[in-house]
Design a binder for these strands. Structure first.
Lengths: 342, 342
DNA sequence: TATTAGCACTCCTCTTAGTTGAGTGCTAAC
DNA sequence: GTTAGCACTCAACTAAGAGGAGTGCTAATA
């Protein structure tokens, strides 16, 4: 168990390093107002903290730097979220000023403002479209052999896909088909559509419409690889500002990671509640060994969920980011439950 | 006017520098197979070429480097597009293998393959949606006070926007309205919709539907800021490979530029035909002073146009890129005119 | 007259050595 | 238990020197 003095020193070191990105020496700490003991005493405590694994040295005669364990202890025990002021809050509120109706706009704006306020990179996940339910299904023919299938969901999302029509497909065929599909598909979630199509709808259609096989097949493949949650980025190049990313290779790896949808998705932990913090190697991705990722979720309407991630160096301003994310998730949740309905 | 020998030497120097990114010395040139004269002779010619502004030195005793004027001369007079082989062409063809119907997929894939083949960054502009014409207009109500407006265009593109319904708006109101809108809007291009709405449709609607004013207003604002051509990127971080971009600031500026839609749009020159090359400061953007941009256009169906840009260092492999773009534009044009129809 | 060999000169790049200063750990005094 | 004092370490900076790639000029050559 750490003594009070050790806690105080550890906190001072982490805070200082987060602020200045320089190894912290005993003298520097001793000059802080809240510290009442001499550099020599601090040096002794520092040596203990290093033995315990909370601090590291970059070389034998350098100041101390927090280890991952140090950061972990810091966020678990020494963090009282703060460091945001009314200006910050005002700026967040400004997202909702212009009475935008569209979820997408709000999220896009949120991503930008978050990256601006944190000076890190923000990633926001929109609603999980897969769980939307079909409100209406329609098909608009474009020519004799192609058409667009359109699905409107209960939340106002629109999916559309072009596909080729089987030859000799008449307008009345199409109408019958659309009617049947609407009867059967309304209320089904997008992720279940192709199951439903193949299991149930196919047999019904075969009785009423010629070339239903081909058609359904086209439709199934069209709805198969459906879009996952849309991803919005803010401040993609903000990391260039951080001294730990003055290395081109690191930056590149992270930027590349952010271009890969599956990798980005795996940054999130949608099943855990509250605010998650992954420090350095706690992240699964090798590319993120020098980064911390802070994530949280927000609600969109009754049953939808979005997520937020902030990516920065392990030397991240955890206090501020956690505080900001907390405000953000609440505001987003509120904004999206107020106006949405079925 | 340059002598034959000067042309030969200029070409050799530019080619060599494009390949190795190192200032080129007289000895290096003299060792090339096609060069039959001594280093001393080459030095004399180099001095002349420098006086004429085609070459530069990085310092008094360094080898020569092409100037912008040198590159310009090179692409104007010494460039015979080549340097692509059947493997490259095969890879380009592979874009069209899986009989994709959707324009978007093909373009996305093209962007990736182009960046892979060039090892530069590619930007592709999709069709200019503004010039699509309305095929069908429909409205799907979501709740008592909100609905989605959907426009399907002749090319199978789907635009949709949520908006609030005026209070006490009945289903029959909606139906009437949709009918009127379809009568009037089909065949109108997207960019003209709001003019048409305000000028013509408004008065008709006012006669038949209550609260038409509010409604049209909502619709107009919804269709106003329509999406421009969609932008697709390939190999955003490829520039990290180029030695001239080992400077974080340059990379950052270019990446930031690529996040700004208006800036990206201004890289293209849709009214010029063929393949355009902008070298260094020939680009309007200050950020691009060390870059060259090669652009071209391709056709999508009868009247639509897309565009391609490749961004690389001024020391770009012009030969290869021009050759690749030429194949690409032809293949895309062909693919999109074959299957499209009204 | 056009070309080329030879040579002095330039200047970048790399290495080495020396200096400075921030910081530590240890010991002894308070 | 705390702190002043001091020897020690090591990164960061600076200066000097060696090496080498390349040039421009001059004089010899075909």
């Amino acid at each position: 168990m750490l003594t009070n003095r050790q806690l105080q020193i550890l906190q001072a070191i982490v805070d200082d390093f987060i602020m200045f990105a320089q190894p912290v020496g005993s003298r520097q700490i001793s000059k802080k107002q809240e510290i009442t003991f001499s550099p020599a005493t601090i040096r002794n405590e520092m040596a203990d903290l290093e033995e315990l694994g909370f601090l590291e040295k970059t070389h034998t005669s350098s100041g101390r730097v927090p280890s991952e364990k140090g950061y972990r202890f810091y966020v678990d025990h020494l963090l009282n979220p703060q460091g945001i002021n009314s200006r910050d809050i005002q700026q967040i509120q400004s997202i909702f000023n212009d009475r935008l109706v569209e979820v997408e706009h709000i999220i896009r704006k949120s991503a930008n403002i978050l990256s601006e306020l944190t000076s890190y990179t923000s990633i926001l996940l929109g609603p999980d479209v897969q769980r939307h339910r079909v409100k209406r299904f329609s098909i608009v023919p474009l020519s004799s052999d192609s058409a667009v299938a359109i699905i409107v969901t209960n939340n106002g999302h629109v999916e559309n896909r072009m596909f080729s029509l089987p030859p000799n497909f008449t307008a009345s065929d199409l109408e019958k088909m659309v009617n049947i599909l609407n009867e059967r598909l309304v209320g089904v979630s997008l992720e279940d559509i192709h199951k439903k199509l193949e299991a149930e709808v196919l047999t019904v259609l075969q009785q009423h419409v010629r070339s239903a096989d081909d058609f359904i097949h086209a439709l199934v493949t069209a709805t198969m690889h459906n879009s996952e949650s849309k991803i919005f980025y803010g401040g993609k190049t903000n990391m260039f500002n951080q001294p730990e990313f003055h290395d081109l290779n690191k930056v590149r790896m992270i930027l590349d990671l952010m271009e890969t949808t599956s990798q980005v998705q795996s940054l999130f932990h949608p099943n855990e509640s509250g605010i998650q913090i992954r420090i350095g190697s706690e992240n699964k991705q090798l590319e993120m060994e020098n980064c911390s990722v802070i994530t949280t979720t927000y609600s969109i309407g009754e049953d939808q969920q979005g997520a937020i991630a902030i990516i920065g160096p392990t030397r991240m301003d955890y206090k501020r980011v956690v505080a900001l994310l907390d405000v953000m998730r609440m505001d987003l949740t509120q904004a999206f439950t107020k106006n949405r309905s079925d």
